[in-house]
């Protein structure tokens, strides 16, 4: 099969995936509005199916492009949505927390919507990007961003949880504040670990490609800023009275830094990562 054929299939799959994520989001909204658990179950199945097809789309694009599909804005955005979906599904299953999927769905849809607005053309890679480190560097960033996305969603749920009356519909589907705080901490932990790995692999790669493992490029600097914000989050949690609400707010602020590192830096502060 020709490369073009693979890319056509990927295009089709991408559209189907977007529709599935959209349908899942609408059903989750309906679940909250109509208070019917069955709708959430269907939404979860659609999100799961979307994730499977999304994985297939990424693999097919990789085959069509003849390389890892992680090198331009479209590819990173669709991978970012995939990473967020992966981490949220893992957390839903691990912590039996269905409502997390409901709150993650709009974020996933927004990110894949952003991907849909980017050019899907496949270009050959410039020599600096032709490295095995690319796979390690970008795939770890996808998991890190996905985990931070989940911590953002959990932060929002935590703040909403505070305003819920006991025994309300959502109250029965949302864990206790202590558990929410802990799951949020776990997602930040996962994100920070992978972000550290991203920075480390990026530094090793930069040293090989550009002769300098750290040159204060805006992308590097904002990765460090994101790292510092989550490091502050972890330190604050050790202080009395800072768990819960304050940690939730910090998780939300941290994700804004993540989004700026991803989109804002490329738009406003171009550097050597301008292609990313």
């Amino acid at each position: 099969m020709s490369a073009d054929k693979f890319l056509q299939i990927e295009n089709l799959l991408f559209t189907v995936v977007m529709l599935l994520y959209f349908a899942s989001m609408i059903l989750y909204f309906a679940f909250i509005a109509a208070r019917r658990e069955k709708l959430a179950a269907v939404a979860e199945i659609l999100q799961g199916l979307g994730f499977v097809l999304h994985t297939a789309a990424l693999v097919i694009r990789g085959i069509g492009a003849g390389r890892l599909p992680l090198t331009n804005q479209y590819e990173f955005a669709t991978s970012f949505a995939w990473g967020l979906c992966l981490v949220s599904l893992v957390f839903v299953l691990k912590y039996r927390f269905q409502v997390l999927g409901a709150f993650a769905a709009p974020v996933i849809f927004l990110i894949i919507g952003y991907a849909a607005m980017q050019s899907r053309d496949v270009h050959e890679l410039m020599p600096a990007l032709r490295s095995n480190w690319l796979g390690f560097h970008v795939s770890t960033a996808i998991i890190a961003y996905g985990a931070f996305g989940v911590s953002f969603v959990l932060g929002i749920i935590f703040l909403m949880r505070e305003g819920m009356k006991d025994q309300s519909f959502l109250d029965r589907h949302v864990p206790s504040r202590e558990k929410l705080d802990l799951i949020g901490y776990r997602s930040v932990s996962l994100g920070l670990l992978f972000l550290t790995f991203t920075i480390l692999t990026g530094a090793i790669w930069a040293e090989r490609a550009w002769g300098s493992y750290w040159s204060w490029d805006p992308k590097e600097t904002w990765s460090l800023i994101t790292w510092l914000i989550y490091a502050i989050y972890l330190h604050l949690r050790l202080r009395r009275g800072w768990r819960g609400r304050a940690a939730a707010i910090f998780a939300i602020v941290g994700f804004i830094a993540v989004l700026f590192t991803y989109v804002g830096v490329n738009t406003f502060l171009p550097g050597v990562h301008s292609y990313a």
Partner: peptide
């Protein structure tokens, strides 16, 4: 702990400023 958090905050702020102002 407070000093460490303060330092991290100042470093975060400094890095943000350094990334916004074109260096050199």
């Amino acid at each position: 702990m407070q000093f460490a958090i303060g330092l991290l905050l100042v470093l975060t702020l400094a890095c943000s400023v350094g990334s916004v102002i074109n260096q050199g």
